[in-house]
Amino acid sequence: MSLTIGIAALLIAIVLVIVGHFFPFGIPLTFVGIGLIASLIYDTRYKPASKQPIEPGWVDTGERFIDPETNKRVAVFMRPETGERSYREL
């Protein structure tokens, strides 16, 4: 959804440039479009579940859920030193 809105904002900004009415609405639309697209590219919060065994130093949090993308059961592990979380398929 965010990608669609980001692309639409950039396309509207381009149309505004072509018709000569870029100011004042084209500038914010450009930043909104670039920001939404960049956030999707650089957001690393969601990582798909791995099938590899967990390394030493990771603690099982007891959290379990069904991954909506794969419909597989996933366990959550955490590294206490950093707070980093890792997701493993069961």
Score class of each variant (00 low, 15 high):
3 L>T: 14
3 L>G: 15
3 L>A: 14
4 T>Q: 11
5 I>M: 07
6 G>Q: 04
7 I>R: 06
9 A>F: 07
9 A>V: 04
9 A>C: 13
10 L>N: 04
10 L>D: 03
11 L>T: 12
12 I>W: 02
12 I>C: 08
13 A>W: 03
13 A>E: 02
13 A>D: 02
14 I>C: 11
14 I>Q: 08
15 V>F: 12
16 L>S: 05
20 G>N: 01
20 G>R: 01
23 F>E: 15
23 F>V: 11
25 F>T: 12
25 F>C: 10
26 G>N: 03
29 L>D: 05
30 T>R: 04
31 F>W: 06
31 F>I: 13
31 F>R: 02
32 V>M: 07
32 V>P: 03
33 G>K: 00
36 L>A: 03
37 I>M: 10
38 A>I: 11
39 S>W: 10
40 L>P: 07
44 T>K: 11
45 R>Y: 10
47 K>D: 11
47 K>F: 10
50 S>C: 06
50 S>E: 05
51 K>R: 12
52 Q>C: 07
52 Q>W: 11
52 Q>G: 09
52 Q>S: 15
55 E>I: 08
55 E>Q: 11
58 W>N: 00
59 V>N: 09
61 T>E: 06
62 G>D: 00
63 E>I: 15
63 E>Y: 06
64 R>F: 08
64 R>H: 14
65 F>A: 00
66 I>P: 05
66 I>F: 01
67 D>N: 04
67 D>C: 03
67 D>R: 01
67 D>E: 01
68 P>H: 00
69 E>M: 13
73 R>L: 14
74 V>L: 04
75 A>K: 15
77 F>T: 00
77 F>W: 13
77 F>D: 00
78 M>E: 09
80 P>I: 03
82 T>C: 01
82 T>V: 04
84 E>L: 14
85 R>P: 04
87 Y>V: 02
87 Y>Q: 06
87 Y>T: 03
89 E>T: 15
